[in-house]
Design a binder for these strands. Structure first.
Length: 568
RNA sequence: CGGGGAUUAGCGCAACUGGUAGCGCGCACGGUUCGGGAUCGUGAGGCUGCAGGUUCAAAUCCUGUAUCCCCGACCA
């Protein structure tokens, strides 16, 4: 390709809105262009890179036995409703009507479509596992797209789906995908941290995310040197016992003229924070009031809480709701006796973190202003409707796996994920197969995703310097960036083409050498060749790797083999 | 959805207390240059996001609205 013919140009300036490096560089180097919030055009250079990523993914994913197909983008809303996923995805779904007012959604993911497809072939155990995948445009009406291609409303995803007789069978495919993802990441020159994760809107039980450490990442992951790694949404930690050897003392009310913060309580009673009970009131999408209680030194993890109470959405209760509906007082909420006060028409759930089993004789509010309770004990003084882990892990907490070392929190971007979905879709949609004995059994499902545009952005995030992108050779839009100076280069360009070398030839004659070098740095093609009077006087063509500072003059005859060797 | 900022030429930005729009880059043409974003000259390019209002006069003030960005909420 001649640069003068290439559609899409580099630019000297780029909007100050592009604060993330990959966003700025991809814009500036002419790989992408924005159409609307979270919607980007892939220009020829950008598309070339994405196609290379797709091919790498295709090659590795097919090793799992997956077969490529493609399903429509518009999904009849009824299918989503069958699986109850329309509510899970909620506002993120793009809705469309046809001329008959039939409702469709623009595919955000394709579990329901793929399951429906599989059902149409009435599979028997002999057909299983079924392992299918596609590359297709996904639509998610994200509340706030950000970071260029890192979070968009419209993107190409490789989404794979597998169908099994049981979980053990899924695990085999799951492991194959795991390995495939690591191979893909290696080819993309990305260092992956695999973490346990929450299944979120996809549903199911266990899943893993393939993360790349990055300051611009929207996720936080907890890691330990022992190998433990989990998304913060899922990460657990050791909750040490505080004073379990104490005898339970008598519950008592005391006057407590104080502010409404945890620290105010600590100061007033001169008792440790970890003996205080923290009370947080939430309201979910069904209008249920949820009182989450937890040891004072811990924080509530809303994702864990949502999973425990089976809610899709939580918000904090307002002060008015606490006063008028719970008949309590902000800052003085307590699980003790709160239930009696509440209007029985309002559904009310008390959820206790298991950390409340690590303490005795706790203190906190009384649901009355300026009165606190001392020596509060679970079971004796209050009971929870649900108990479990709803605590957020923090930097320095003790690792749940080795139980000795401290967790370290790092920011990361999600490169891909694999979901063990189980029966989350087969149940509501009657996704069955016929077993050996002729009986119908539920299909056990898995799903597997990688966003292509995001993968490209992560790669730029990881591989760039002050002057531009530094593509790994597997992804570079071209292998060689040939710069012709002094009107030279055409003959050698033709020669490279004949040798099947993928070359971008900067043939512009109205542009200075400096501008060409700057553009080459920006675009980031691995090998830069310069052919000029000067290089010829020195006996050949200048050869320089984008990733290195030094260049060398190489004789034309040896150059082709040097290039092909570099790429093998 | 809450808070903040923005919208003027293809891109990046100016235009004070209202007087009818300019700079840089890029683009076109012509010269001189030619190994790290050269330079000189000439030129093209704008219903100032949109809709109302105030005024003799609006890019500028007011109201509404749309879009974009950032922080948060949400989402993976």
């Amino acid at each position: 390709m001649k640069y003068s013919q290439l559609f899409g140009k580099t630019s000297k300036t780029v909007s100050k809105d592009a604060t993330v490096a990959s966003h700025r560089l991809l814009l500036q180097a002419g790989f992408i262009r924005q159409l609307a919030a979270g919607r980007y055009t892939l220009l020829p250079l950008g598309l070339k890179v994405c196609k290379k990523i797709e091919n790498i993914i295709r090659e590795e994913v097919e090793k799992t036995g997956a077969q490529e197909l493609i399903v429509p983008t518009l999904h009849p809303i009824e299918l989503w409703q069958q699986a109850n996923r329309d509510k899970k995805f909620g506002a993120a779904m793009m809705m469309v009507n046809d001329r008959n007012q039939a409702q469709f959604t623009l595919g955000a993911t394709a579990e329901v479509i793929m399951l429906d497809l599989v059902k149409q072939f009435a599979p028997s155990y002999k057909d299983l596992p079924i392992n299918i995948y596609q590359f297709s445009q996904k639509f998610r009406d994200e509340a706030r797209p950000s970071g260029g291609l890192l979070r968009t409303r419209e993107f190409v995803m490789k989404d794979g789906y597998s169908f099994h007789t049981n979980e053990a069978d899924l695990k085999e495919t799951y492991q194959k995908y795991w390995d495939a993802y690591l191979n893909i990441a290696q080819k993309l020159d990305l260092k992956i941290i695999v973490v346990e994760s929450d299944n979120g809107a996809i549903g199911g039980a266990v899943s893993h995310e393939f993360m790349v450490e990055s300051e611009v990442g929207e996720d936080t992951i907890a890691t330990c040197t022992c190998g433990y790694a989990a998304n913060l949404e899922k990460a657990s930690f050791v909750k040490n016992s505080i004073n379990l050897d104490e005898a339970e003392k008598e519950l008592s009310e005391v006057e407590a003229v104080r502010g409404t913060t945890m620290e105010d309580g600590v100061k007033l009673h001169n008792l440790p924070l970890n003996l205080q009970i923290k009370d947080v009131v939430y309201v979910d999408e069904k209008g249920r009031f949820i009182l989450a209680i937890i040891r004072g030194d811990f924080m509530v993890n809303e994702t864990k809480l949502k999973n425990l109470v089976l809610s899709n959405e939580l918000r904090h209760a307002t002060e008015e709701e606490i006063i008028n509906i719970l008949h309590s007082v902000p800052g003085f909420i307590s699980p003790v006796g709160i239930r009696q006060n509440i209007d029985p028409k309002s559904e009310f759930i008390i959820v206790a973190d298991d950390s409340l089993r690590t303490v005795k004789n706790c203190y906190g509010g009384s649901n009355k202003k300026n009165i606190d309770l001392l020596n509060v004990n679970i079971d004796r003084d209050y009971k929870a409707d649900l108990e479990g882990d709803i605590a957020a892990a923090c930097e320095g907490d003790i690792c749940p796996q080795c139980k000795s070392q401290k967790l370290h929190l790092i920011k990361a971007v999600e490169f891909g994920n694999i979901f063990n979905i189980g029966y989350a879709y087969s149940d509501p949609m009657n996704g069955n197969y016929t077993d050996k004995d002729g009986s119908l059994k539920k299909l056990y499902m898995g799903s597997y995703g990688i966003g292509i545009g995001r993968a490209m952005a992560i790669d730029v995030e990881v591989h760039h310097d002050d002057t531009g992108i530094v593509w790994p050779k597997s992804l570079a839009p071209y292998q060689v960036h040939l710069i012709g100076l002094d009107g030279m280069g055409e003959d050698f360009y033709q020669e490279l083409l004949l040798k099947n070398i993928d070359v971008l030839f900067d043939d512009r004659d109205s542009v200075s050498a400096g501008a060409k070098f700057a553009d080459a740095d920006l675009i980031g093609i691995p090998i830069r060749l310069v052919i000029s009077k000067r290089s010829q006087e020195k006996g050949g063509i200048e050869y320089k790797l984008r990733s290195q500072k030094e260049s060398e003059i190489i004789d034309k005859k040896n150059l082709i083999s040097k290039i092909t060797n570099y790429f093998n």
